[in-house]
Simulated assay, not measured.
Amino acid sequence: MISIYELKPKFQQLLMPFVNNLHKHHVTPNQVTISACLLSIITGVLFYFNYDSRWIYIVIPLFMFVRMAMNAIDGVLAKKFNLTSRLGKFLNELTDVISDTALFIPFTLVTHTFSASVIIFITLSIISEMAGVLAEVTSGERRYDGPMGKSDRAFLIGVISVILLFKIPLEPYLHIIFIAASILIAFNIYKRVLGGLEESS
């Protein structure tokens, strides 16, 4: 099934000037990773306390794009200039789920019906990333199978924010969107586990 993750190589090519400039100024991949996480937490806190303000729904999709760029930059920076590290691996995986949680939790305030659907969405997102990491432990290959992988979730949240920005009454139906997305995440968990088992056999 198609995932935005498949566009990552082309996206990384577009970011090469930024990568080269960061390396020139001695910025490390871990610094980019930590910065992305801190910005995610700050944005999530702003969202939580301003969920009823229109301006926050301009910030969220813009930041989701910036975060996707930073997530791509740290990886390219590490690989191109041989700056990979064991610490970087831990930071990359842990900060992703921390960032997702910080950015998604405020939607419990926006979702009028069955706000627990957001918690289900967050929980399955974390399990999905854990499945990808465990696949690497068993087979040596990190799994990024879609649908509704990390990039897809960021895109979904961005689209929802844009719709809310234009005051389209989406709130009563948000729980349906999050439940549908959760079903897709459950499917990608299955694919990642199955893929990891097949690669290790």
Rank of each mutant, 00 (worst) to 15 (best):
I160Y: 03
S182F: 08
V59D: 07
R142W: 04
L109H: 14
V76N: 05
L109Q: 14
F49I: 12
M130P: 00
L109S: 13
V59Q: 09
A69N: 08
A181D: 06
S161D: 07
S182T: 12
M148D: 11
T95R: 00
S99A: 15
V59M: 14
L165V: 04
F155C: 14
V76K: 09
S128H: 06
T113E: 13
T43F: 08
D52A: 15
I120H: 02
A78G: 06
T123I: 13
V137E: 13
M68T: 14
I176A: 09
R153K: 15
L83H: 03
L77K: 03
R86A: 10
A131R: 03
V76P: 03
D96R: 02
E136V: 00
I122E: 05
V97R: 01
D52Y: 12
I120N: 06
Y48H: 13
V97L: 06
D96H: 04
E136M: 12
L62H: 07
T84A: 10
L103F: 01
L165F: 14
I127K: 03
L124Y: 12
I60L: 15
P169H: 02
T111E: 09
R54H: 10
S99W: 00
T113V: 15
F63A: 09
A72C: 14
Y51S: 14
A131Y: 03
L91Q: 01
V45K: 04
I168C: 01
F107W: 13
P147L: 11
V118C: 07
A131P: 03
F166M: 02
F90Y: 12
L164V: 01
V133G: 01
S139Q: 10
I176F: 11
G132M: 10
Y48A: 15
L62F: 15
F47D: 05
P172K: 06
T113M: 08
I98S: 01
H112W: 05
S117I: 08
K150Y: 07
L170R: 03
I157D: 02
E129A: 14
E136D: 14
D145Y: 12
A135R: 06
S182M: 10
I105A: 07
S99H: 02
L170S: 02
V59G: 04
N50L: 11
V162H: 00
H175I: 04
A154Y: 03
A135S: 15
V133H: 06
E129H: 05
F155R: 05
G158K: 04
F65C: 13
L103V: 02
R142A: 11
K79M: 10
S115W: 13
S85F: 01
A69F: 06
N82G: 02
G140H: 10
I41Q: 08
L91K: 00
S53G: 02
K167L: 01
A131V: 06
F166D: 00
I160G: 07
M148H: 09
R67K: 13
A102P: 01
P172A: 06
A116D: 12
S53V: 06
T111R: 09
G88T: 03
